[in-house]
Nucleic acid binder design. Structure first.
Lengths: 191, 191
DNA sequence: AAAAACACTTGACGTAGATCAAGGTGTTAA
DNA sequence: TTAACACCTTGATCTACGTCAAGTGTTTTT
């Protein structure tokens, strides 16, 4: 039971679930352990799950047609990740999700989530409120990317997520910020 | 009643509302007419409403510290817009929303939406599903911005939204795509 | 414990796209 | 009908960053 404490606490920040609702919800959860460098999502396969990180770190990235990686998201404890487009439309994923460390994640299937959200009002509220916040962050990221220099974007990130910046490889952070690894190295050195 | 047809049809694509739910929902809606170039949201004022475009076109943009505009979103009929961060946290807006044409919009207050979403399960589902889709698009835009050239971004947009590309001024599109107006003009000329 | 792979740094160079500046055309306003 | 804008174009630079390449330290693998 306590293995779900993290996600239940997360939900409790937004809504209150009854005991039976908690039981219904936890019944659709599946705990998965993944090793560093293991792929959780791969292009060509449907991203069947919404994934919640209990422990560890995961990044989602896109491999473009010239072989360059572009990181969509970097997640640590208490973050959700998935290839949202693939998950929502049940189409083959276009992104990879890769464990940056040995990690423990909670997975929940699209159909199960939808069924429960149709039945449990509070759960629907939880996801709505959480996603609204995520959208507001995503919008902010779009603006930062088009309005700030590489250097500004880097320091903004370090300022906001100091512990993540130290935890993930530099080339991952570079590809998240839309900077080449070489340039990021130079940005760090001049300071 | 038929003045709400657009938004009710939009909702009907996601969920089914009963007649009394429809009545409850429409009771919180307020129709507003705005003239071309009029601001609907301004920095310093809280963005109180979720806005739905019935007719016309609106853009949301950020004015940076050197006076450059960066367009967050361009919306036409059946699109929602707001300064999401301001709306969700009831903090002063950082963005402008400006009518690009004389427009008719439907406005709904944060407190009213939250109250109804707490009471009407289907409405909560509607917003959840709609926002999930919006998040998936926003993620896609982040990746496009960091992985494609200006030229690719422009043609991708024209391809995807041909009618919008013709409807809004070029400098607005440029600032949406993160390109200078001069460069966009050159991209268009070489083809 | 050696070999191989991975992650980061540093230098030299090239270029996409920004900036600055000037002129042209269509639209709004007095 | 004459300004006064608003929007777009075109040309001449400039520069922030990307690319390519080589070298070093650090894990991972065998």
């Amino acid at each position: 039971m306590s293995k779900y404490k993290g996600i239940l606490d997360h939900i409790a920040k937004y809504v209150e679930l009854s005991d039976t609702e908690i039981a219904d919800f936890t019944s659709i959860l599946k705990i998965t352990r993944v090793k560093k460098r293991q792929f959780i999502i791969q292009p060509g396969f449907v991203s069947e799950y919404r994934n919640y990180i209990v422990e560890g770190a995961v990044r989602v990235f896109y491999l473009d047609d010239v072989g360059k990686e572009h990181t969509v998201s970097i997640g640590v404890e208490d973050w959700f990740f998935t290839d949202f487009h693939s998950y929502l439309n049940r189409t083959p994923a276009e992104y990879y999700a890769e464990a940056l460390e040995d990690s423990v994640i909670i997975q929940m299937k699209y159909d199960d989530v939808e069924e429960l959200c149709g039945r449990i009002h509070a759960l629907c509220q939880y996801f709505r409120l959480y996603i609204e916040k995520a959208l507001s962050h995503s919008n902010q990221r779009v603006i930062t990317n088009i309005s700030k220099t590489s250097e500004e974007r880097y320091w903004e990130y370090v300022n906001r997520y100091p512990q993540i910046a130290n935890r993930v490889p530099q080339y991952v952070l570079a590809s998240y910020l839309g900077i080449s690894p070489e340039s990021l190295s130079r940005i760090r050195s001049r300071s």
